[in-house]
């Protein structure tokens, strides 16, 4: 493969005195699924927020498909192909399911209304959502999560970050999402970053993993290796094992 799709270099993000992300590097290539793990408060979500443009980094750089996007606002990054889902469910409650999905197609891809609706309809099928004209309040949790993924895909991203998508799902539902993500990554040749706490998802879904603790990168590699890493175990369990 040619150059990586996403190159994140030495990102630091502070909030007043708190250093949430402390010099993290990350690269993503097309077709690969990378896990971002670490204990609570390790800075995973902040990292995703910086990459997607919700926050600007205090220092460091982000380059996407060769272009420096470090200082671009969020909607510009979305238009260039950086996509994400959100940890807490945040659909647009006043739009119905398919309309939620259409937003990305309308604004990130700037499609006309009719095409946007078609694209949204196809994506709902792709993720397995039946009857997308329903209101968001009528969807099950699993369906909302699928809608979130479809919503993120509607913007036609080249890189997609899934931020704790599995939270609150049971085993069967989690497996369904795993299958959906694999299918979508294949079909669209995406570069995917998965922030997760559910370890079997990381084990089954990702090609490799980076581990954050206290804002710093403490390990990287395939899951099987990282899971044995003493520092990682200590970070999760705290102190001596």
């Amino acid at each position: 493969m040619s150059q990586p799709t996403l190159v994140v270099e030495n990102i630091v993000r502070t909030f007043g005195g708190l250093v949430a992300v402390d010099g993290v590097d990350l690269t993503l290539e097309q077709g690969e699924i990378v896990g971002v793990i670490g204990p609570n408060g390790a800075g995973k979500s902040t990292l995703i927020n910086v990459i997607s443009g919700v926050y600007l980094p205090t220092s460091g750089s982000i380059s996407f498909r060769g272009e420096d996007v470090t200082n671009l606002p969020a909607h510009e990054r979305s238009r260039r192909g950086i996509g994400r889902t959100y940890q807490l469910i945040h659909p647009f409650m006043d739009l119905n399911c398919i309309e939620n999905v259409m937003v990305g197609a309308l604004f990130a891809r700037k499609l006309p209304m009719r095409s946007a609706r078609l694209v949204a309809s196809e994506l709902c099928e792709l993720v397995g959502l039946a009857d997308p004209s329903r209101r968001v309040s009528e969807l099950t949790i699993l369906e909302v999560k699928k809608m979130e993924i479809a919503h993120a895909l509607a913007a036609d991203p080249r890189v997609l970050f899934l931020d704790e998508t599995m939270a609150g799902l049971n085993i069967d539902e989690t497996n369904e999402i795993i299958k959906t993500v694999r299918r979508v990554t294949e079909e669209k040749q995406l570069a995917v970053g998965v922030v997760e706490h559910v370890m079997h998802v990381i084990r089954d879904l990702t090609h490799r993993v980076i581990v954050l603790d206290g804002g710093r990168l403490i390990a990287a590699g395939p899951y099987s290796e990282v899971a044995q890493n003493e520092q990682v175990i200590r970070a999760y369990l705290g102190g001596d094992v």
């Binding site: 969020a74 909607h75 979305s78 945040h90 647009f92 739009l95 990130a108 919503h151 509607a154 913007a155």
Partner: peptide, 10 residues
């Protein structure tokens, strides 16, 4: 409904 999500949707 949600400015942050809207913005990251383009």
């Amino acid at each position: 409904d949600n400015e942050v999500v809207a913005s990251s949707s383009g």
